[in-house]
Simulated assay, not measured.
Amino acid sequence: MAGTSSGIVAGLTAAAVGAVGFLAFQARATVPAGLGGKPSASASAASKAPRDRRNPTALPHGSGTGERVVYSLDDDRVWLVSARDRVQRTFRVRPGNLDPLPGTYWVSSRSNAVTGSDGVPIEHVVRFTTTADGIAIGFSAAVGDGSPVAADPGVKTGGIRESRSDGDAMWLFATIGVPVVVIR
Rank of each mutant, 00 (worst) to 15 (best):
V155W: 01
S108K: 10
G21D: 09
G119N: 12
P148Q: 03
R161D: 00
T90Q: 05
A174K: 13
F139W: 14
Y71N: 01
T4C: 08
T157R: 00
F139V: 14
A169R: 08
V182Q: 00
R68C: 08
A150T: 12
G66K: 06
G116T: 10
I137W: 00
W171G: 12
A10R: 11
T4Q: 14
V81E: 05
T157V: 00
S42V: 05
S140P: 09
H61L: 12
V125I: 03
V70D: 00
V181F: 07
K38F: 02
G154R: 06
R164V: 11
G154I: 01
A142S: 13
A33V: 09
T65G: 10
A46W: 00
A16Q: 12
R184P: 14
Q26T: 04
L35C: 15
A174R: 11
L73N: 12
R92A: 15
G144F: 09
L23F: 05
L98R: 01
V149G: 09
D74T: 05
N97G: 01
A141H: 13
G96D: 03
S165H: 07
S111R: 06
D52K: 03
D99L: 01
V182C: 02
A132Q: 09
S140R: 07
S108D: 13
R110M: 14
P95Y: 00
L23G: 07
R94F: 03
S6N: 07
R77E: 06
G158A: 01
A83I: 05
A19V: 05
V107P: 15
V81I: 15
P60C: 08
T13C: 10
P102K: 01
R161M: 02
G34T: 02
R28C: 04
L35W: 03
R161T: 01
A10W: 06
A113I: 04
A150I: 09
G96W: 00
R86P: 12
A136F: 00
L12Y: 05
V155E: 14
E67H: 11
T104I: 07
V155Y: 03
V20S: 15
V17Q: 07
G21S: 05
S72G: 07
P179M: 14
H124T: 05
P179L: 03
T30V: 09
A136I: 09
V78Q: 02
D118A: 11
V180W: 00
M1S: 09
G7C: 04
G34Q: 01
V70F: 04
R110Y: 07
F139D: 15
V20Q: 04
M170F: 08
S44R: 09
V180M: 01
M1W: 06
S140K: 11
D52M: 03
I122M: 11
S163D: 13
M1C: 10
G37N: 11
A14P: 11
V107A: 09
V125M: 10
A141S: 11
T157F: 00
G103L: 07
S82T: 07
A2K: 11
H61W: 04
A27S: 14
P100Y: 08
I176C: 06
A83L: 03
S42C: 02
R86Y: 02
D74G: 09
G119A: 15
W106Q: 08
A174S: 08
A45P: 01
A10M: 15
N55V: 10
D145A: 14
A45F: 05
P148G: 13
W106L: 04
D85E: 06
P153Y: 02
